[in-house]
């Protein structure tokens, strides 16, 4: 069941989301972004899918925008690999009309090895 901003507190951990980076998904990403093709999935393609998967977990109001982003890459992902992403609320700010969230996403492969950590600060439109 997706969660909304008001229900979130720092430390809240969402259930894991699992997905497979099929070759077609990777090829579409590479074509759109215009990056050079390598034997592995561009790390930002992995991250983009993880961030989009948040939409399955929480209701973000239309107009939510990115304020900052941090990544740590720990390993390569091959097309067709299965990925698991666990997101956690690191920080929540509600001050007047300002509503911000910082979320941390830890992405692991099918062997459980950590491949990427991302931290996204997002600004939600004013109430």
């Amino acid at each position: 069941m997706p969660t909304n901003y008001d229900e979130l507190t720092p430390g809240f951990e969402f259930p894991p989301v699992e997905y497979r980076l099929e070759e077609g998904i990777v090829a579409d990403y590479v074509a759109v972004v215009g990056v050079e093709q390598t034997g592995h999935v561009p790390p930002l393609a992995v991250a983009a899918r993880a961030i989009a998967s948040l939409g399955e977990l929480m209701i973000l109001p239309p107009g939510t925008i990115h304020a900052s982003q941090e990544f740590e890459f720990h390993g390569l992902v091959s097309p067709g690999d299965g990925i698991s992403c666990v997101a956690k609320v690191i920080r929540k700010v509600s001050r007047g009309p300002i509503r911000m969230l910082t979320l941390e996403m830890r992405i692991t492969n099918e062997s459980g090895a950590l491949i990427q950590v991302g931290r996204s600060a997002i600004v939600l439109p004013g109430a």
């Binding site: 790390p43 930002l44 393609a45 961030i51 925008i65 990115h66 304020a67 982003q69 720990h74 390569l76």
Partner: peptide, 30 residues
């Protein structure tokens, strides 16, 4: 924002090769 960051990552991959994709760290503000 992630589309623009994909270009940043591409520049770093062209410079550092797989070392970027395997061990890179990036912190940016929009």
């Amino acid at each position: 924002g992630m589309l623009v960051l994909a270009f940043v990552s591409e520049m770093l991959a062209r410079t550092f090769g797989d070392a970027w994709d395997e061990s890179g760290r990036l912190f940016v503000k929009f």
